[in-house]
């Protein structure tokens, strides 16, 4: 079972940032970040943490809800806000950088099916510096796609549910 964690403060935004991921994943357990339990996390085979709107950064005040990621052994994928959370939990630093719309990113190593140049959809005000124990997969200045050195913990600053859904499918195929 996949646990999909919604990072949206407003229910209406879930149609924009959570539902499109759910459409790729299929049957899954969707929980808001204020409502999931440790039992949900234990039961899940994999966890996906969604993004949210440009103005919605309330999650930054509630990072302690995600401390479990540090010791989690199963695969996790953080999308936009989700990636920022993962990086902050592993002690990266929050920095300002606004990117809206399509950007070309060069994947120097294959990352969940993406390699070489790809157009990706960005919608964020911030990014987080690369934490220790993580590697980045693009040659961009800021980390756009990262993975933990030894665990299956992935993060993307862009939104793969917009025209790059095969990235999510590849994550679902991880053994």
């Amino acid at each position: 079972m996949i646990l999909l964690i919604s990072m949206c403060s407003d229910k209406l935004h879930e149609l924009e940032f959570v539902k499109p991921i759910e459409n790729v994943v299929g049957k899954c357990l969707v929980r808001h970040y204020k409502n999931f339990t440790l039992k949900d996390i234990e039961k899940a085979d994999k966890v996906i943490i969604s993004g949210t709107s440009l103005k919605d950064d309330f999650f930054l005040k509630e990072l302690e809800r995600f401390n479990w990621i540090r010791d989690y052994a199963k695969p996790v994928l953080g999308i936009c806000a989700g990636m920022q959370i993962i990086s902050l939990i592993f002690r990266g630093k929050l920095r300002k950088k606004k990117e809206i719309g399509y950007y070309r990113e060069n994947f120097v190593k294959e990352f969940l099916s993406l390699k070489d140049e790809h157009e990706v959809y960005h919608l964020h005000n911030n990014y987080v510096s690369l934490p220790k124990d993580f590697i980045k997969f693009t040659d961009s200045k800021i980390p756009q796609a990262i993975k933990h050195n030894s665990k299956n913990i992935y993060g993307v600053l862009f939104h793969p549910e917009v025209r790059n859904s095969k990235l999510i499918e590849e994550f679902l195929n991880l053994v």
């Binding site: 407003d10 209406l12 935004h13 149609l15 924009e16 539902k19 499109p20 459409n23 709107s53 440009l54 103005k55 919605d56 606004k98 809206i100 719309g101 399509y102 959809y121 919608l123 549910e161 917009v162 025209r163």
Partner: peptide, 26 residues
């Protein structure tokens, strides 16, 4: 993406939330 990017940028400039409830709908 053409439409939504431009509207997101305008909303951001004006300090407004932007909702696209049909985004990527089947």
């Amino acid at each position: 993406v053409y439409q939504s990017t431009r509207i997101q940028k305008i909303c951001d400039k004006l300090g407004l939330e932007c909702f696209n409830p049909l985004w990527q709908i089947d």
